[in-house]
Design a protein around this nucleic acid. Structure first.
Lengths: 109, 109
DNA sequence: CGGTATCCTGTCCGATACTG
DNA sequence: CAGTATCGGACAGGATACCG
């Protein structure tokens, strides 16, 4: 039994899935892999996610230390940028493998 | 927009997560990565999953073509073995990366 | 611009009991 | 031994409206 940030996992594989699982987290990480992006840029990159869900997933990823959130303006209109942290960058090879296998599976079908 | 086995995905990363996501699929694949296992052996390897859930997840993985189910006995008591298919084996590097990152994250915390 | 608040729905998944 | 049947709770995630 493993523990990470207060949650328990029966196996190292399930720990990873607990952190990057869910419907949108890998997609967010995939888009942040090569670029720092603003909230609105993420929305454009992922047109089918709702604002609420995107917001919640970003907060989750931030709490797990994978991404950073930087506010550049003192007042509205706000400018906010999201980027991978150093810890989040350790996921890059994994995200690349996830994306590559998705492409491969499509090419098989 | 990508399609795989009748489901739609907005991104190659989300396709992969749709196939190996969920609470238990990567754990099953992790245990089948190096060994063919019987149902009861999977249960021993994953003591905290319920029979119902294990059964459903195995069926999902079989329908997605990742694992094979072989019955060796004509009547009860049954002997059933699960193994990765050739297509499922293409996931091995990914599963290894998932497991390795889980270990790494624990070592950081 | 970058979010929350509120409400609601589906689905995942656990518990328990039973079967070929 | 290897499952299925039934029930039900919790939570992820969508729709829409509103706020600093």
């Amino acid at each position: 039994m493993l523990e990470f940030r207060g949650k328990q996992y029966p196996c190292c594989a399930s720990l990873t899935m607990g952190v990057i699982g869910g419907k949108w987290k890998t997609v967010i990480l995939f888009h942040l892999m090569n670029n720092t992006l603003r909230y609105s840029e993420l929305r454009k990159a992922m047109p089918t996610v709702t604002e609420r869900t995107l917001s919640l997933q970003l907060k989750d990823l931030e709490e797990d230390g994978l991404i950073s959130r930087t506010v550049y303006t003192p007042k509205p209109p706000l400018k906010v940028e999201y980027a991978l942290t150093e810890f989040g960058k350790t996921l890059i090879p994994l995200i690349q493998a996830v994306a590559a296998w998705g492409d491969y599976a499509v090419s098989c079908a």
